[in-house]
Amino acid sequence: MSVSKRLSLGILFLAIALPAVAETPQEKGHAIAIEADSRDTGFKDWKGTLRMVLMNRHGETSERELRMRSLEVPAEDEGDKTLIVFDNPRDVKGTALLTFTHILEPDDQWLYLPALKRVKRISSNNKSGPFMGSEFAFEDFSAQEVDKYKYEWLRDEKLGDIDCFVNTRYPQYGNSGYTRQITWVDKEHYRVHKIEFYDRKDALLKTMVLTKYRQYLDRYWRTHDMFMENHQTGKTTRLVWGDYEFQSGLSEKDFSKATLQRMR
């Protein structure tokens, strides 16, 4: 066999073998994230209500109620806009938080304080801080954009009866409280069913379980129950979502500093 023949055979072998080895775990993880994202694009805007039940180690609970709305920003390199209005507890009633999400740069955030009628631009460096004293960090609430993480597919696994991809994702944005998160995404609809959060020391910090998925506009799946358990403190927070409404005609002007001042 001549050298050239050997070479061409080698190339032929490579060409056959490539499709099988082409997808590294990183590429596969990334592809899963892209597929999940593409299935959730085009919603334009949504609104929803949210009840949070916080429970401490002794079983004592306290509740919060808020409303959230979100506007999809079509630009690839920009994140969505969200507005959260607090209804309960009553001492923070009317307080509103406007966020312009960015992919890797810090978000822009404005807080409206109704007692003073004051809109305050605030630092968004509090990503890993607790949201309203709950077990959810601000970053757990943030819009999930593909490029916020690097991905790695770990394995396929059944979660209960559901066939899932199990991926690790590594936050790429600054000031995250996590080294990594492990996600369980179902193969049929690419919905997230469970996330394990690992803290800065890479110890298991929290687990979130997402259930009661319902489909809107025959396309967009939304969870109605997110249960977060902090393994280090024993505290839990349950988020109960309701009154989802899609494409209700929200626009940029509903997500501005000027709007924030008359938010109810």
Partner: peptide
Amino acid sequence: VQYTGDSLL
């Protein structure tokens, strides 16, 4: 005027 940085205002 307000400048909003990472942790600095």
